[in-house]
Simulated assay, not measured.
Amino acid sequence: MSVLMNSAMNTQELAMNAIPKFKGVRVVFADGTELVVPPLNLAAVEMLQERLVAFSGGLDAHSVALVADATVLALQRNYPGISREQVVSELLDLGNMAEVMEAVMDVSGFKRKQQEAAAAPGGAPGEAPAGMANR
């Protein structure tokens, strides 16, 4: 079994065994794993602040690295055992990079609140968790 396959299984096992401590946006990642992505905490924002301000959202090396780093820091709040290697090898791809960064930066909680309302009995019809709309 390949190293990547092992990390994917570990990511899915991590998701199944962890109870998220922080509220966030539910995202279905590239490998099919669904995780709750909380917003960055202030320590992470301070650490990434200059890079966040300069973020272009493009495919330049700085933007791609920022998405990876911010995603890892956010996910580690709910899944402390997750590694950067797992995030960049199995969870992130070009198809979900922007969506995941949006979830990480969901500072107001707006997307999370929409998902909670949709999941509640009688929730808004036709709404899907982040990552499910294009599947």
Results as ranks from 00 to 15, higher is better:
Leu73Gln: 15
Leu73Glu: 14
Ala74Cys: 10
Ala74Asp: 03
Leu75Met: 14
Leu75Lys: 13
Gln76Phe: 07
Arg77Ser: 08
Arg77Trp: 02
Arg77Gly: 07
Asn78His: 08
Tyr79Lys: 08
Tyr79Asp: 08
Tyr79His: 12
Gly81Lys: 13
Arg84Asp: 09
Arg84Asn: 12
Arg84Glu: 13
Arg84Gln: 11
Glu85Val: 09
Glu85Ala: 12
Gln86Thr: 10
Val87Lys: 04
Val88Thr: 15
Val88Ser: 04
Ser89Asn: 10
Ser89Glu: 10
Glu90Val: 09
Leu91Pro: 08
Leu92Lys: 04
Asp93Phe: 00
Asp93Pro: 02
Asp93Gly: 01
Asp93His: 01
Leu94Thr: 02
Asn96Lys: 00
Met97Ser: 15
Val100Gln: 00
Met101Cys: 06
Glu102Lys: 10
Glu102Asn: 13
Glu102Thr: 12
Glu102Tyr: 01
Ala103Met: 03
Ala103Lys: 01
Met105Val: 04
Asp106Glu: 01
Val107Pro: 05
Ser108Arg: 13
Ser108Pro: 13
Gly109Tyr: 07
Gly109Asn: 12
Phe110Thr: 14
Lys111Pro: 03
Lys111Arg: 10
Lys111Ile: 15
Arg112His: 15
Arg112Glu: 14
Lys113Phe: 07
Gln114Asn: 08
Gln114Asp: 05
Gln115Met: 04
Glu116Asp: 15
Glu116Ala: 11
Ala117Leu: 15
Ala118Ile: 11
Ala118Glu: 07
Ala119Met: 13
Ala119Arg: 14
Pro121Ser: 13
Pro121Glu: 11
Pro121Val: 12
Gly122Phe: 08
Gly122Val: 07
Gly122Leu: 05
Gly123Ile: 10
Gly123Asn: 09
Gly123Met: 08
Gly123Val: 07
Gly123Asp: 05
Ala124Arg: 15
Ala124Cys: 11
Pro125Met: 01
Pro125Arg: 04
Gly126Phe: 06
Gly126His: 01
Glu127Asn: 04
Glu127Tyr: 05
